[in-house]
Design a protein around this nucleic acid. Structure first.
Length: 323
RNA sequence: GCUGGGGUGGCAGAGCGGCCAAUUGCACAAGACUGUAAAUCUUGCGCCCGAAAGGGCUACGGGGGUUCGAAUCCCUCCCCCAGCA
């Protein structure tokens, strides 16, 4: 591959209208979509993850969906109950991206999982160290101060560099210990080349960020939730539980699958489910906004983001013009 | 009308003489996070000054009292709920 290739990246919080925009642009500019969403990768999580809107025309194929005549990759990559990580996304997305380019189409990455997008276009340093699930299960039983002590033993530098928040965060502590242990124990540098994908230098990324004031997004998200509840979201989760998907696994997915499965397990009533879910979705939107805000500010000067406030009226025309 | 329970911060709900500007959860806000990222985690959240320590003001339905000291005890008024009429 030589020459200059362009890839469009559209990111934004939940309910910012990323997917609609992406489909529109794909049709206009002969593009194909790669979804960057950590929950849409699961087969069977459709309504809860909001893969498509209910008035879209959908055909499911092996390896991709066709939504309103646009090819969408990134759905149904793994089965429910399995583990999927940023590294898996990286492998999938970079190969798919190349395939789209080879087919002379415009790749459009769309998603709300900032970490995945960052991994794809900027790379992730320690990504060569695979997760050791067995070790994690063992460490999960320990409290944070014990974990911190442990990290202090295996990698004092790393331990001391952690901030207050990370020191209280079991997941981050465990991952830090995991990295320290694995790289110390068996000099596994050989492992690295296997999964590491650095950003391809020939690709020029055109970044589009979508945002809006909190209240605006909250309202849209609440409405979208109501629509999905009317269109079988509960039944989708019930079916998963009936097929022996572990409630713990669903709980760990967060948001829709967490609260609906708790409701179906009679831990809470319907109204509680809706209220807590809305609250968590709002928090999630806030977290996404913080993440994307920082992401944008830390981008190298060569990569600028075009940011659009979707609560303003003519944002879509402006985007089409700039492209 | 009588009897019993109750009125606490945006909401739910603890506190029942000093350690209370008031536990906790929710909501809201800001932030962290390089292989679980829709997860996980931190901080703030009456008002004013302060980077902080801290200080000042206003607060636990209204009013009045008891006390060195009251969200907490007493009186009274208003309102809500349950039972009896």
């Amino acid at each position: 591959m030589t020459g200059k290739y362009i890839m469009l990246v559209i990111y934004g919080p939940t309910a910012s209208g990323k997917t609609d925009l992406a489909i529109k642009l794909a049709r206009k500019f002969n593009g194909e979509i790669i979804s960057a969403d950590s929950r849409q990768v699961y087969k069977g999580l459709d309504i809860g993850t909001g893969k498509v809107s209910f008035d879209s025309k959908v055909e499911k194929h092996k390896g991709f969906w066709i939504v309103d005549d646009v090819k969408v990759y990134g759905f149904d990559l793994v089965k429910v109950g399995e583990q999927f990580t940023a590294a898996d996304f990286l492998t999938f997305a970079s190969t798919t991206m190349i395939r789209i380019i080879v087919a002379k189409k415009l790749p459009i990455v769309v998603g709300g999982t900032g970490f995945y997008i960052k991994a794809l276009i900027e790379g992730i340093g320690s990504i060569g160290v695979k997760p050791d699930w067995q070790l994690r299960r063992k460490l999960e039983k320990l409290d944070t101060s014990t974990l911190y002590q442990k990290l202090l033993e295996v990698n004092p530098t790393r331990a001391r560099s952690m901030n207050q928040s990370d020191r209280a965060n079991p997941r981050r502590l465990i991952r830090a210990i995991e990295i320290a242990l694995l790289s110390q124990k068996s000099e596994v540098k050989s492992q690295k080349s296997e999964t590491t994908h650095y950003p391809l230098p020939t690709i020029h990324y055109l970044l589009i960020g979508l945002t809006a004031p909190n209240d605006f997004l909250y309202q849209r998200a609440d409405y979208w939730l109501d629509v999905r509840l009317e269109h079988g979201m509960i039944e989708e989760v019930r079916a998963l539980l009936d097929h022996k998907v572990s409630p713990k696994w669903l709980d760990d997915l967060g948001l829709e699958y967490r609260w609906v499965s708790r409701y179906l397990k009679n831990k809470i009533d319907y109204n509680q489910m809706v209220e807590r879910l809305k609250g968590d979705i709002h928090s999630f939107i806030r977290r996404q906004k913080t993440w994307f805000h920082k992401f944008k500010n830390n981008l190298p000067a060569s990569r600028q983001v075009k940011l659009y406030d979707i609560s303003k009226s003519n944002w879509q025309e402006q985007i089409e013009k700039t492209i």
